[in-house]
Nucleic acid binder design. Structure first.
Length: 864
RNA sequence: GCCGGGAUGGCGGAACUGGUAGACGCGCCGGACUCAAAAUCCGGUUCUGGCAACAGAGUGUGGGUUCGAUUCCCUCUCCCGGCACCA
């Protein structure tokens, strides 16, 4: 073998071997239990970034590990190819999104191949291919028929200058990102998927997802947001009946019906009918309603904005006392949640308290919390005011515990027909219509005579014309007559094709099913999906913890209810990897724009960051995700060219556990490269000494210790890779073993045998992480078979036995000494040895020993 | 604002079920090799005191439970992810 490690040569050799044998093509009839290993597919933005490298390396390590453990592994890859960035690139460069996207895919595919991932490229899909998205359309029509999809109006951001709908991220401080024009809200017809019908099931099934991180399950549960409460109807007072043209009720939903007697006002959303009716007669109110409607609908904005309100002058009546309650319009009440109206109980709700204090609305205490001995709620607000307790001043419902009061009040309301207990979810239905070009067309035709008509199955897919270039002023589809103009499938008269496209979350909600049968042109899924699904291990960024994963769980169930799959949950186990960060440095010249500088161009002088080029200081802006705008990205391509794919993979896996954020470090890359070179040299030195045919029959203490370490390390790496997914500690253990193996005196036959065994174990167990170099080293070590076809080794129990163990001796929990005792020594022996330990005795002194705690094979704690 | 997560040497991190804090790597310091440098190899490296043995302090803040807490409970601070049209 070569004395020098040459990554380019090694990686070409290994990849040529795998490619020539189609080593990673997955077959349904191959032996072994199936293992479907899936990493979230990338958006083809142009170049791979480090987050991708990290994501796909994690998946690849698991896929290769499982393959060596006898599993029939499938690891596919594809492209989340529709979306906004392609339209932005088109506007900037005048290139059609289709061309831009396909070129990006070709380039990124080459990059992925260079990293040596064990991917079955035969199953590759791109969501922008008609062969894929036709099934979006096909399923959408079935959902429409079954009532899972439906049409209603929804609110969008409207840029009045560009005459176009903007995404939330294109709205900056309430203005269009390109035009700077104040954004208006518009209500337009859209299609929705009835995910709320599945809320209960999606919530309940979280308990069974024990292969998912607890935090993701918690986030999903909170997102679904089930609350059990009470619907309460407040009858209109005469003024409100008059304004709305007849009697009626104002409905609210509350989880705190026990505070009903503390309600001193009502608050409704700006779009609520009562608000609109009042605004019609009051210009000031109309202006306020208008202002609210212009404001952001983003939850974060709504929650942090100043709470504002105006009285409508109208009233409703308390359902029990009949007392009139003023109705306010408030900007913190959303039409989309609950009934679009809330009852204001300032004494027991922090938000209502703030609102009432500002507007001089009375505060009436009706619950005494068990802990707080207050008689009356008064400023400042304390959390105890909002806690449940015993009701007071609540008529016939006084003196009850909150829970009992809720029950009693709900029953009384129900008897009067003014309310009932009800379950409410925070989750909203999923609006999938996008007024954009680069997405999957919604397969509907609008006919003046027949209304909304589905495109017949035989006409699917509705193909997206690929030559268009968006210019930022509306959806180019709508301006393309050959797309829009069509015949009504029902009556044959001229009709208009729907020009909205689908949310890209639709594309990603079922791609994992399509990998199982990507070549099937006749059906969306077939029996092979039954074989491969569910995904055994899904790997992706934590930023997808809620939306993508929840939509996929819903979509899978929808397909189940349409009889296409028998699956409930698509992803059995989930690993959410952390982001890849790098330092951010910038300069901010007077009156100029910030200029960012790459961390590689910055060094520390006397603890202060300066630009190497001119030695003048730069500002350190902490750590952030690698991005073009912050100028702190590192190109995986350069990394692979300079150090090789194995170093890139090793660095990613070693530097942090997968779920944590990972900090980029050029020195860390060097360290990873150095380790591979050290491993190469160790194998080279070993094999250049000739055969290693000694046996393990009568080893000396030093060789016995190395052999024990070899098998302890094997056991640890197996556990770290297979169960804990802590690749960093697995690598650390392999490094320790290499350090020990290169230190042992291995010139004699037995020494050579134990060193050889250690090297075999290191090469085998690191092969999922650094597959290229280990592929070549395995051959150098004299093995004839290919490493990828080897079985994962098992530790030899005999090698793990110890004669002696070292115990820590503590006095009152403080470390005072160490003792060595025979393995399996009795507690009495251990106790006596500990009490005899010299340093420990100094600390025991004359004091009587009160207790001795013995933790087997670990420590003895003497309590005095 | 709400929901979720995090904070350990100079740095990334380890300590898995309450039991030796700092594995492994980086950086730094010293040495070997070299005409020299790079590379490589060997040794040291939490802080304070001490020649040393050893002692004291120490896991973001303040408190609690325990023989024993980085780990469990409460409080606060700061950082990160998500908040429904970025993907």
């Amino acid at each position: 073998m070569d004395e020098r490690y040459d990554p380019a040569r090694v990686e070409r050799a290994a990849q040529d071997y795998w490619n020539s044998r189609q080593a990673f093509a997955a077959r349904e009839d191959a032996p072994g239990e199936k293992y479907y290993c899936l990493s979230m597919f990338p958006y083809p933005s142009g170049r791979l970034h480090m987050g991708h490298v990290r994501n796909y390396t994690i998946g690849d390590v698991l896929a290769r590990f499982m393959r060596m453990n006898g599993r029939n592994v499938m690891q596919p890859m594809g492209w989340d190819a529709f979306g906004l960035p392609a339209e932005n690139a088109a506007m900037a460069n005048g290139v059609p999104p289709a061309k831009w996207t396909r070129e990006n895919i070709a380039y990124m595919k080459r990059q992925l191949r260079s990293l040596g991932f064990a991917i079955d490229w035969n199953r590759e899909i791109a969501t922008c291919d008609p062969a894929y998205y036709r099934w979006n359309q096909w399923l959408f029509l079935r959902m429409l028929k079954k009532g899972i999809a439906y049409r209603r109006t929804g609110v969008v951001n409207w840029d009045p200058v560009d005459q176009t709908v903007l995404a939330n991220e294109q709205v900056i401080d309430g203005r269009g990102w390109r035009t700077g024009a104040p954004i208006e809200k518009r209500e337009i017809p859209m299609y929705y998927l009835n995910i709320t019908a599945y809320a209960e099931e999606l919530l309940g099934a979280l308990d069974g997802l024990d292969g998912w991180p607890e935090r993701v399950r918690a986030m999903q549960a909170n997102w679904i947001g089930k609350s059990t409460g009470c619907e309460i109807a407040f009858p209109y007072a005469d003024d409100t009946s008059a304004a709305l043209g007849g009697p009626g009720v104002l409905k609210v939903f509350t989880t705190r019906a026990d505070t009903l007697f503390g309600a001193t006002f009502m608050a409704v959303a700006a779009e609520h009918p009562v608000a609109l009716a009042a605004a019609a007669r009051d210009p000031k109110l109309a202006a306020f309603v208008d202002e609210c409607r212009r404001g952001s609908t983003m939850e974060a904005d709504v929650a942090t904005q100043q709470k504002k309100g105006l009285p409508t002058g109208l009233h409703v009546r308390h359902p029990f006392t009949g007392a009139p309650l003023p109705v306010w319009v408030a900007n913190y009440v959303l039409l989309g949640y609950g009934e679009g109206a809330v009852m204001g109980v300032p004494a027991h709700d922090a938000r209502d308290f703030e609102f009432a204090s500002r507007h001089d609305i009375p505060i009436v205490t009706v619950v005494k919390s068990k802990s707080g001995a207050y008689a009356r709620v008064a400023a400042p607000w304390i959390d105890a005011y909002g806690e449940p307790g015993i009701t007071v001043d609540s008529g016939e419902f006084s003196g009850l515990e909150s829970a009992a009061a809720v029950d009693a009040i709900a029953a009384a309301l129900e008897a009067r027909g003014l309310g009932a207990k009800r379950v409410q979810y925070r989750l909203r239905d999923w609006g999938i219509s996008r007024q954009r070009y680069w997405g999957c067309p919604i397969p509907l035709i609008h006919c003046e005579a027949c209304g909304e008509v589905p495109v017949p199955d035989e006409d699917l897919p509705v193909r997206l014309p690929e030559h268009l270039v968006p210019d930022g002023s509306g959806n180019p589809l709508a301006k393309t007559p050959e797309f829009v103009n069509c015949k009504c499938p029902k009556c044959g008269r001229p009709a208009r094709r729907e020009t909205d496209t689908m949310d890209t979350f639709v594309d990603s909600s079922w791609y994992f099913l399509r990998y199982a049968c990507a070549d099937n042109e006749r059906a969306m899924v077939d029996a092979r999906a039954g074989y491969w699904l569910p995904v055994d291990q899904y790997i992706g960024g934590i930023e997808h913890a809620i939306l993508h994963l929840l939509y996929s769980r819903f979509w899978t169930r929808a397909m189940r209810d349409l009889g296409l799959v028998t699956l409930d949950e698509p992803f059995a186990r989930l690993l959410t990897q952390g982001m890849v960060l790098n330092h951010i440095y910038y300069r901010h010249p007077e009156g100029g724009r910030r200029t960012y500088h790459h961390p590689a161009d910055v060094e520390l002088r006397d603890g202060r960051p300066v630009l190497i080029a001119d030695g003048a200081p730069v500002v350190h802006d902490g750590l952030g995700t690698m991005s073009k705008s912050k100028g702190n990205g590192v190109d995986p391509q350069k990394l692979v060219e300079e150090f090789g794919a194995d170093t890139a993979r090793l660095f990613m896996m070693f530097t942090a556990p997968p779920e944590q954020t990972l900090e980029w470090s050029d020195e860390g890359v060097q360290g990873a490269f150095r380790f591979i070179r050290r491993l190469w040299k160790a194998v080279h030195d070993h094999v250049s000494q000739g055969a290693a045919d000694g046996d393990f029959a009568a080893l000396g203490a030093e060789h016995k210790a190395l052999r024990r370490l070899t098998h302890e390390t094997l056991a640890k790496i197996t556990d770290d890779l297979g169960r804990r997914h802590t690749f960093n500690t697995a690598i650390a253990a392999a490094m320790e073993l290499l350090n020990a193996a290169t230190r042992v005196s291995g010139a004699d036959a037995q020494g050579r045998a134990v060193v050889r065994e250690a090297l075999d174990v290191i090469v085998l167990t690191l092969s999922p992480i650094i597959p290229h170099v280990t592929h070549v080293l395995w051959q150098s070590l004299g093995h004839t078979g290919a490493l990828i076809d080897e079985r994962w080794p098992k530790p030899d129990p005999a090698a793990l036995l110890r004669d002696e163990v070292e115990l820590v001796v503590q006095v009152n929990g403080r470390l005072r000494g160490r003792i060595r005792v025979a393995a399996g020594a009795s507690e009495e022996t251990v106790r006596a040895a500990a009490l005899a330990e010299e340093n420990a005795r100094k600390f025991i002194g004359e004091a009587p020993v009160r207790k001795v705690i013995i933790v087997r094979d670990k420590l003895v704690n003497i309590v005095v």
